[in-house]
Design a protein around this nucleic acid. Structure first.
Lengths: 236, 236
DNA sequence: GAGCGCCATCTTCCATGCAAGCATGAATAT
DNA sequence: ATATTCATGCTTGCATGGAAGATGGCGCTC
């Protein structure tokens, strides 16, 4: 019986009081993100509890949270199902991201100049990192820098609800992202589009910032979705 | 000890199998919405369990869901706190609604004409209802018709994640809505703005539909927020 | 051989018991 | 009178047992 995630370490617990529910939640969330629990996999709470070295209760409560996040589905008296993403789910997720990121960029571009300049610099730095990673053919680093760009874009809007929404759909689509990272190599306009977003923010052009952020996601969607269907991927 | 909500009726249960957790969740959600549980109120799981005629477990699990919805906060070993909305929360909620409803209107306006016509008619019908209610000085009916308009707008976009997001922020701000319904009487441009949204959808003008939906919410926000601060309402 | 029904088993659901932490207030010392 | 300390009660966190339900296999019947 292999342990899925880290369990309460009784020796060095000097940092923070985390409940077993939090442990179980993080462990399962991670396991789902990196496909240790693949979609379609059906687990039982008892089994997971054994792996994590705890009783069924905290696992059960963590599952409730994961269900709220849309990551699992609990089939009454059948077990826990790791949900798969359909093309329709992808369409939904993209529209949510387009809406939220567009508004976030718009809001940032309406902030005072000092903050705009600072944010634009941070965004440009991450874009620089993407360029550097591309030169090194370092795909993981490229993906991380791209993620960091979009995370920074949301965080700078200072809207915890927007952050949470994006976090949720990111969790849902994380597996897809890992997959698509390998598909689209080279043919990507992300860098120029990121520049346009940062520049619009720098100059305080709200409408253009919103449009740039939206078009960036729309273009990425229109490139990816046909690719997936051509590969015959019906769910993941 | 007064019962807060309906409890499992053992006699007529011919409709659907609802778990006790669902019962507890709905009962508490309703109690929070209609201020039976006012913000700042601190309850204990045992107390709520007694009121609902069940044990602590389903209440505890329902509380986890409500916490995910941002309606309550559980203070470890102190109790359950009904969260209050700060002006900053209001700002966040409005921006989420502006983003989502704007995109929803944009998407609907991009649908085939038959569906657009149908949706526009439904929206106009609800706006008619608002006008009629205003003539009768029937404020609750006006509020219901307005809610129905916005619910229809979201539902027609056929995006379950958007629906869920809106549902969540609606739950959070429901008390505020009930309050503001009484504040702004007469001085409201909602009807004309609703017409413009419906008309943009009817003609398939995506950009204008998005703008109309966004401006409608922005205008409402800019009217309401100063009103609240002038009344000295720091939280609710 | 095919189909039907029953039973064993595995699952979640819920109740309850125990433990641990924190706040409150009383009681005592200064 | 005031401050401090300690005990008590109330809270959630977690474990565990029993119950209800669903499913799959196995045996029986035709």
């Amino acid at each position: 019986m292999k342990r899925v995630g880290p369990v309460r370490n009784s020796v060095e617990e000097g940092e923070r009081k985390k409940s077993l529910v939090d442990d179980a939640y993080e462990a399962m969330r991670t396991a789902i993100r990196d496909s240790t629990f693949a979609p379609g996999y059906q687990a039982s709470e008892q089994e997971i509890a054994n792996r994590l070295g705890m009783s069924r209760t905290p696992v059960h409560e963590a599952v409730i949270r994961l269900q709220g996040d849309g990551l699992v589905e609990v089939l009454p008296r059948k077990g826990i199902l790791i949900v798969a993403l359909s093309p329709d789910d992808l369409r939904e997720i993209y529209d949510v991201v387009i809406a939220i990121e567009g508004r976030a960029a718009e809001l940032i571009a309406a902030l005072p100049q000092a903050e705009r300049t600072n944010t634009a610099k941070v965004l440009d730095d991450w874009t620089d990192e993407m360029v550097a990673a591309e030169k090194r053919n370092d795909l993981p680093a490229w993906g991380n820098a791209d993620s960091a760009f979009h995370t920074a874009l949301i965080e700078r809007a200072r809207n915890s609800r927007m952050s949470r929404i994006i976090q949720t759909v990111n969790d849902q689509s994380h597996r897809l992202r890992m997959l698509t990272l390998n598909l689209r190599r080279g043919l990507d306009a992300s860098v120029e589009e990121h520049r346009r977003i940062a520049q619009s923010i720098r100059f305080g052009h709200s409408a253009e910032a919103s449009d740039a952020a939206r078009q960036h996601r729309i273009r990425a969607r229109d490139e990816l979705l046909p690719l997936l269907t051509s590969y015959g991927l019906k769910h993941l």
